[in-house]
């Protein structure tokens, strides 16, 4: 397949930094604006850019349906798992303080895991939604 050069080269250059930026936003939710939702959207937007330039079929090869669905559900499971773990360890749902010996470390761990779950779910959902829209005709 022949792709027009300018868009192909520039997007090839920009997609890896965009994905890295998404992960930066993911893990620096404590320090600045950001967190799971935003990171998920940015990560998905890198995929959407790939799909726009290189075609839906290639993008589907990179991120097949089972992969995005697994990502989506894994994020949800992680979120619920952290919440339920709080109950089992003697707190209430989503009680981070009981996750570790030291409540502060526990809270930190809990929030990081929850944000990661949110990010995974959001990016999976966004990519899935994009593919569903794009497969429509006209």
């Amino acid at each position: 397949m022949i792709f027009k050069a300018v868009l192909r080269v520039v997007s090839k250059l920009l997609i890896p930094p965009i994905m890295l930026f998404a992960l930066y936003v993911q893990f620096h939710g404590d320090f600045g604006p950001g967190g799971g939702f935003q990171a998920g959207v940015i990560f998905a937007s890198a995929f959407i850019l790939y799909a726009l330039i290189f075609g839906i079929d290639n993008a589907r090869k990179v991120a097949p349906a089972w992969a995005t669905r697994t990502l989506l559900s894994l994020g949800l499971v992680l979120y619920a798992g952290v919440g339920v773990a709080g109950i089992f360890l003697g707190g209430s749902f989503l009680d981070y303080s009981v996750l570790a010996e030291d409540p502060v470390i526990g809270q930190h761990l809990g929030i990081t895991l929850i944000e990661f779950g949110v990010g995974a779910t959001v990016s999976g959902a966004m990519i899935t939604i994009f593919f569903i829209f794009a497969h429509q005709d006209g």
Binding site: K12, I15, P16, M19, L20, L23, Y50, F54, V62
Partner: peptide, 15 residues
Amino acid sequence: ASTVVVVLIARRMDL
């Protein structure tokens, strides 16, 4: 970890 993930995805995308 993030760098490794991104490089792996970029490889998969053939970038």
